[in-house]
């Protein structure tokens, strides 16, 4: 892309970015609230949105890129229809989260940090959800879950079909 090329954002994404800028650009330290608003609306922060955001805040693209990549929360691609975050931290390890992570990855046929090829589900690691007495913990589409099992998760997500045999993506 040449420096002057217009950002290749689809219209609805562009509208979401403009709404985020509108709502937050005047606030001190506006970049994080803007990035959150974009991701809340779209599920990710499109890399093509960064020049627009940088321009609006009078920052360099490198600055904005540096911030987006520093924080674990921001995705650069759309997530699956469901997002399951599995806690990997110590208190959950103490009650079997390592096995849970293995089981869930096997059942859903993808890895932590990946979206399944059919777009059904994204699995992400998370480091403590503040539910450490009721682990293993997970966040399913933004809702906290305690004492999680792989079969319980599968039952909660009936529209995520079991992994095609041997088909990790």
């Amino acid at each position: 892309m040449t420096p002057t090329a217009p950002p290749a954002l689809p219209p609805d994404a562009l509208a979401a970015v403009e709404r985020a800028l509108e709502a937050h650009r005047g606030r001190p330290g506006a970049l994080l609230p803007i990035l959150h608003a974009v991701q809340d609306a779209l599920g990710y922060v499109p890399p093509d949105a960064l020049p627009t955001i940088a321009h609006a805040l009078n920052l360099s693209r490198a600055d904005v890129h540096g911030v987006v990549t520093f924080y674990h929360d921001f995705r650069d691609a759309p997530p699956g229809r469901h997002v399951v975050k599995l806690c990997r931290a110590e208190a959950c390890q103490a009650v079997g989260s390592d096995e849970l992570v293995r089981d869930v990855c096997a059942r859903f046929g993808t890895e932590l940090g990946h979206t399944r090829a059919d777009g059904a589900v994204t699995l992400e690691p998370v480091y403590c959800l503040g539910n450490c007495a009721l682990g293993p913990s997970a966040m399913v589409d933004g809702e906290l879950r305690g004492r999680v099992t792989a079969s319980g998760l599968a039952a909660e997500l009936p529209d995520v079909p079991a992994a095609p045999p041997g088909g990790a993506s």
């Binding site: 001190p28 330290g29 506006a30 970049l31 994080l32 990035l35 959150h36 600055d63 911030v67 520093f70 924080y71 674990h72 929360d73 921001f74 998370v126 480091y127």
Partner: peptide, 19 residues
Amino acid sequence: AGAYVCGEETALLESLEGK
């Protein structure tokens, strides 16, 4: 935004400032 180090007070301040 999911960074453990932002609990450290000066990293937190940087983050609040949008960096």
